[in-house]
């Protein structure tokens, strides 16, 4: 059996109690929600903790409701399955449902949570391995070692941001609430991420993510595609999320976000600037897609499935396809479609 290391365990019933326990020793304590990321990582010994605080017994952190402005608030420990089954979310953000329904597998979505997906550890072929494997090539800097095996001369870690709900939620302008013994603060979700595979979140270790808020839909057209080897279980190697607001022919506002191509979700600002004020035609879309491949930290390296050069090419193809879908133009399927 691949067993978890020993730890002290707490299952508080309020977010305030959880924050209090976490504040006692934030460096050696971790919170767990579904555990579908943390437990495998602890079993492989590349993450560890003396104390674990489970968020699962905190009723106030789970559930979905609509606020006064028509926005939707999702508690951090709401499971991915609960979100995809929720009628309000289905009606208001159908593309988000598509993104979340692609995560892991149905049985994992019964326990995996939205908070865990947003705080998901970054991933790398040299890191998500068992202890013996990592020891045999000597550890990398993300866990115990000194060098990066993907870019040995690099001073930093390039592990990949892989939470599949993130690009769509960023495109929709979601905000999160962070809770600690010092109180609550609300920040745009896009600001949660830090471009460093080791220190990939900007939140303090003593802060708990308690909820996500998505603004009320305001006429946006959305699209989302994900690339991976199999239709289930595998992590994505690329996801593309688009939300566009148009009046008549003109694009007033558009958000294009990529997942799994760097240590943070990547906003394609050059493509966005190129499209604003223009109609979405086959030509403008192709130009915007070419820009997406170049700019802004979309930097596929040799640390996920598939060759980096090919993944780079697929960025352009996928951005083109998703924008065409949003514009209502015919789209050629690039890979066979699998059920989730």
């Amino acid at each position: 059996m691949l067993r978890l290391p020993a730890f002290q365990f707490h299952a508080p019933e309020t977010a305030a109690d959880a924050a209090r326990i976490l504040a006692e020793d934030p460096a050696n304590t971790r919170v767990v929600a579904g555990g579908t990321d943390l437990w495998p990582n602890m079993k492989r010994r590349h993450q560890g903790a003396k104390t674990i605080v489970s968020l699962r017994s905190i009723p106030e952190m789970s559930g979905i409701c609509v606020d006064d402005e028509g926005g939707v608030i999702i508690g951090a420990t709401t499971t991915l399955d609960q979100i995809t089954r929720n009628e309000t979310v289905q009606e208001k953000y159908p593309t988000l449902v598509k993104a979340i329904a692609s995560i892991s597998s149905p049985v994992l979505r019964n326990t995996g949570t939205i908070g865990g997906n947003l705080c998901l550890d970054t991933r790398c072929t040299y890191y998500n391995q068992n202890e013996e494997w990592r020891r045999s090539i000597s550890y990398c800097m993300k866990a115990e070692g000194e060098v990066c095996w993907v870019a040995p001369s690099s001073p930093r870690c390039w592990a990949v941001s892989s939470g599949d709900s993130v690009p769509m939620l960023c495109a929709l302008g979601a905000e999160i609430t962070l809770h600690s013994t010092e109180g609550e603060r609300i920040v745009p979700l896009a600001e949660l991420f830090n471009d460093d595979g080791m220190h990939y979140l900007t939140k303090r270790p003593d802060e708990i993510l308690t909820r996500v808020r998505i603004p009320a839909p305001s006429g946006e057209r959305t699209g989302w595609w994900k690339l991976r080897r199999r239709g289930s279980i595998d992590y994505g190697v690329l996801s593309v999320a688009v939300a566009g607001w148009c009046s008549g022919e003109t694009t007033d506002r558009i958000e294009i976000w990529l997942g799994s191509v760097g240590s943070t979700p990547v906003r394609c600002s050059e493509s966005i600037d190129h499209l604003i004020g223009k109609p979405l035609t086959a030509e403008t879309i192709a130009e915007a897609a070419a820009l997406a491949r170049k700019g802004d930290g979309a930097n596929p390296l040799g640390n996920t499935d598939f060759a980096p050069q090919w993944r780079g090419k697929m960025i352009e193809k996928y951005v083109d396809a998703v924008l065409r879908e949003v514009a209502g133009l015919p789209v050629e399927r690039l890979v066979p479609h699998h059920g989730s």
Binding site: R44, S105, V107
Partner: peptide, 22 residues
Amino acid sequence: ELGECGTCTVLIDGQPVLSCLE
């Protein structure tokens, strides 16, 4: 024992759950 194969699935309150990650 890492969530990847599903052979450890049991039902908890009628819902399939991986017992290796519970």
